[in-house]
Every structure is written in structure tokens, then in C-alpha cells.
């Protein structure tokens, strides 16, 4: 048993393999849900609504690859894992707001934010890795985004720009999870989350600085490691004037408040933790913070 599996056992979870159902998000900036649904049905595609994700559908059956269809090329849909559709839903960006996406590439959630904003208002998107920019730009173009301004820079340094935001998404860089990657347990070591922690803390403190009073920050990862999830939120609520609030999600488990004998702040239980075999999604973590 790998060190990670042992850790999950200690946290009360037995990691069993999960086969994910492919899922899509309908991009209502380009096409309505009923229109896409009937169009794909006519081609033999069977979709089933994901009950917990606003524009999400599981692909039950498809005679061809949806990622190579005219509907995909025209930007009517985008492949997006079911749990990964939820951070933006929790953020609930509105038309006319000023929103920041701090870790943007390849832009799947960036385009989802613009969808929620109906392309109205301002979205600032930031990506540090320039090799990931082509993917980001292609998605923004294909999905019909028109209210986004994107930068290739370190989001941690953005505080120097003295901008403030109504809402911020920090879909933080993390070490991923065993459902997302083959032989994940064999490929990763605990050193990784130690390394990621510095970036995660730097980014979340920058995010809180840039948030308007009363503004909301959603912190998400596709990691199951508490060091990248609950411990970051615990650190943030103790250090800054923010409080953890309900996500509005019914799926997922409450955030852990005892992690390897360490007792965390009670409000951390308001976060949602997605143990894959319980949610039938990839591993995920979502927290919503509001600035005082």
C-alpha cells in the first residue's frame, strides 16, 4: 500500500478505483441547452443531466468522439469533469462584476466564468506558464468569450497592480489525484505538496488582498491531500479577515476538521471534499471564503 493510500485510510477513506463517466458542459454563450440536446440526440448521442452541475451532462452514449464534432468546433460544448464544473457554480459570478481567475490555463473555468457573466463585466485571467497559453487562448476563442483580458504573469505579483475584485477564483496548482492519472500512487511523493504549499499560500493571500470587502473567493483543487486543501483554508481563516461560508453544494463530504491528529478551525467543515468513490467524480476540494 502506498503512503498516500495509508494516509487516506487514516482520514477514514478507502481509495477504490473509479471509472469516470465522460461529461460535458453546455456553453450557453454559443448554444442553448435544449438546442444542443436535440441536435446531439438526432445524431445518436445520449446525454443525462448531472443533477448537481448547472449546465453539465454526462455522456451516456455517443457513436462518435464529441471532441471532434462540429458542435465542439463551434464551441457549443466543452468536455469538463463533473466536479470541475462546481467551483464556478459556487463562485456564482454575475454580469457586470469584476472577477479574477488566478490560475487560468487551459481556460475551461475561465470560459465558464464568462458564461455565468453572460460576457458582461470584466474578467481578468492570469496564467504563469507561457507553454499553457495557446490552450487557454484557443478555448477562449472557441467558446466565444468576449469579456476577458488575460495576462501571462505570476498571479501572486498581481497585488502590485492595485486592482480589487468582486469575486476571485483560485483553482490552485496542485498534485492532482489518483482518478485523474494512471498509476498516480506510484508517480507522486509527499515532497510535492510541500513544494506546492508555498505557491498556494502565496496565491491565497494575494487573492484575499485583492478582494473587495464582502467579496467572495473560491479556492479549489483536484487534490485529496489535506495539506493542499483544508490546511490551506485553516491557515487562511486564522491569518486573514475572512470567513469560510457554505458552498451551496449538496454533493461531497464536509471538509475535514481533524487531520492526522491536528484539530482545525470548525468553519473548515463548510468546505466540500470529493472522495472519488463517494461522489463518482474525480478527487476534488472546494472552499468559499468571504472577506470581512
Amino acid at each position: 500500500m502506498s503512503v498516500f493510500e495509508k494516509r487516506y485510510h487514516e482520514l477514514g477513506y478507502k481509495p477504490v478505483p473509479v471509472v469516470l463517466k465522460p461529461s460535458i458542459r453546455v456553453n450557453t454563450l454559443r448554444c442553448s441547452e435544449p438546442e444542443l440536446f436535440s441536435r446531439l440526440a438526432a445524431k445518436g448521442v445520449v446525454l443525462e443531466k448531472i443533477p448537481f452541475a448547472k449546465n453539465g451532462y454526462w455522456v451516456e452514449k455517443t457513436p462518435f468522439s464529441l471532441g471532434a464534432s462540429i458542435e465542439y468546433l463551434r464551441g457549443y460544448l466543452t468536455p469538463q469533469e463533473a466536479a470541475a464544473q462546481l467551483p464556478v457554480q459556487v463562485l456564482d459570478p454575475k454580469p457586470g462584476e469584476r472577477v479574477l481567475d488566478m490560475a487560468a490555463a487551459p481556460g475551461v473555468k475561465t470560459s465558464q466564468i464568462c458564461q455565468w457573466m453572460q460576457n458582461k463585466g470584466e474578467l481578468v485571467a492570469v496564467e504563469k506558464n507561457n507553454r499553457r497559453l495557446p490552450g487557454l487562448k484557443n478555448n477562449l476563442e472557441r467558446l466565444g468569450v468576449s469579456n476577458c483580458i488575460a495576462f501571462n504573469t505570476d498571479a501572486g505579483k498581481l497585488v502590485e497592480w492595485t486592482l480589487t475584485f468582486d469575486k476571485i477564483l483560485l483553482d490552485a496548482p496542485c498534485m492532482g489525484n489518483y482518478v485523474k492519472e494512471k498509476d498516480w500512487f506510484g508517480k507522486h511523493s509527499q515532497k510535492e505538496f510541500v513544494r506546492n504549499n508555498a505557491t498556494q499560500k502565496e496565491l491565497i493571500s494575494a487573492a484575499i488582498t485583492m478582494l473587495k470587502p464582502g467579496g467572495a473567493l473560491v479556492y479549489s483543487t483536484c487534490s485529496l491531500e489535506p495539506e493542499e486543501d483544508e490546511l490551506i483554508i485553516d491557515w487562511a481563516v486564522r491569518k486573514f479577515k475572512v470567513r469560510c461560508v457554505q458552498t451551496g453544494l449538496t454533493i461531497g463530504n464536509p471538509g475535514l476538521t481533524t487531520v492526522f491528529d491536528k484539530r482545525l478551525s470548525n468553519e473548515v467543515q463548510l468546505c466540500r471534499r470529493f472522495w472519488p468513490s463517494k461522489t463518482q467524480t474525480e478527487g476534488f476540494f472546494i472552499a468559499k471564503l468571504v472577506k470581512a
Binding site: G121, E122, V124, A125, L133, L136, K137, L140, E141, G144, V145, S146, N147, C148, I149, A150, F151, N152, T153, E160, W161, L163
Partner: peptide
Amino acid sequence: LVPQQLFKLGKDLPRQPVFVGAF
């Protein structure tokens, strides 16, 4: 194609964007 509001925001920022408005 850049909406006025976004154009104004971009003008005040210290860096060139890599994408702005509709491509």
C-alpha cells in the same frame, strides 16, 4: 474586438495582455 470597459481597464495596467475581448 475590445469592449470599451475592458479597453479602459487594460490601458491602466502595467502589462500587455495576451488576449483581450473577442479574438
